[in-house]
């Protein structure tokens, strides 16, 4: 690039400096500091004990501890359930709202509302719904003669309750992405299929779905990464309880760091989860490239 000479590069560097500084202070420095902590024995409850180097002891503890493995299991269980429902319902709704029917634009906007609400507020809304004695849900099911269900106070129901709230919040995201992709498909192949007499189900399976695949994969990984980090809704609804029934990785890290004040262990757990997310992202880009080549 001949026209970007040395002088211009210096100026460009000067202009970039504030951004780089902010990025460094808010992202890179805390990350490096967490990496440093993950190799140290740092207990905030005992501030006078020196933070000695302990090697991989924190990592070893995290990877061999029952609670961490349990939180992984909870995280992936929740992820599997919520993503399945979000994609089945989201794609279904997308097919519905892209029909040329009166009122569809308004319905589409209404359906987006859950996504626009902050997760903490969503948690609070569902707290009102699930509340053991006073909640709306138990009131309505009492009307049809069913006994009240301890939605968020029993180990049996708590994870389901959280899954429902998360599905409610994030299905619109899948719907919106899918609807946009549906509308970008050209209509003529559908008219050709109509003339040839292909059944609706065949058209969906062999014409629509394959063309949506790249978009669905992108949405899937975006949702997977988000679901891996799920925190706000759970914190408001159950704080990981009852017991450890809804303790996901993010809540495990929070509990280690800010309930037990074991900063070193918390930092090590964050790095383990960072590695898992990185693997997910790498898989994502691999599959993206594959579907790009397949086109």
């Amino acid at each position: 690039m001949g026209y970007v000479n040395r002088r211009n590069r210096t100026i460009a560097g000067v202009f970039l400096l504030p951004t780089v500084a902010v990025l460094f202070l808010t992202t890179i420095y805390p990350m490096l500091y967490a990496l440093y902590l993950s190799f140290r024995n740092y207990d905030l409850a005992k501030p006078f004990i020196p933070r000695i180097f302990v090697g991989f002891a924190n990592f070893q503890e995290v990877l061999t501890s029952g609670p961490f493995m349990h939180s992984m299991l909870i995280t992936f269980k929740l992820m599997a359930v919520t993503l399945t429902f979000q994609f089945v319902i989201g794609v279904g709704l997308a097919l519905l709202v892209t029909q040329r029917l009166p009122g569809m634009a308004a319905i589409r906007t209404l359906l987006l509302i859950p996504m626009m609400i902050s997760p903490v507020i969503v948690g609070l809304v569902w707290l009102f719904i699930y509340f053991p004695e006073l909640g709306y849900l138990n009131y309505f099911i009492s009307l049809i003669g069913i006994n009240p269900v301890p939605w968020i106070t029993s180990t049996q129901w708590a994870l389901t309750a959280i899954a429902i709230a998360d599905i409610w919040q994030w299905t619109p995201f899948v719907m919106m992405g899918t609807a946009a992709a549906l509308q970008s498909l050209s209509p003529e192949p559908y008219e050709a299929a109509l003339i040839d007499g292909n059944s609706r189900i065949d058209v969906f399976l062999y014409v629509t779905l394959p063309q949506l695949k790249p978009v669905l994969i992108s949405l899937l990984f975006l949702r997977a990464i988000d679901a891996f980090k799920i925190y706000d809704i759970i914190f408001v609804l159950t704080k990981g309880g009852p017991g450890d029934a809804t303790e996901t990785i993010a809540l495990y890290i929070y509990r280690q760091s800010f309930t037990f004040w074991r900063m070193g262990v918390g930092a090590a757990a964050s790095f383990v989860s960072l590695i898992i997310i990185s693997v997910l992202i790498t898989l994502f880009f691999k599959s993206m490239q594959k579907s790009a080549v397949a086109r």
Partner: peptide, 21 residues
């Protein structure tokens, strides 16, 4: 009658081929 029962076939201006097949 729906298009499929008219014993016709159509060739479209932009060909309307299924792009992924």
């Amino acid at each position: 009658r729906p298009p499929k029962d008219r014993k016709i076939a159509m060739v479209f201006q932009n060909y309307a081929l299924y792009p992924h097949m």
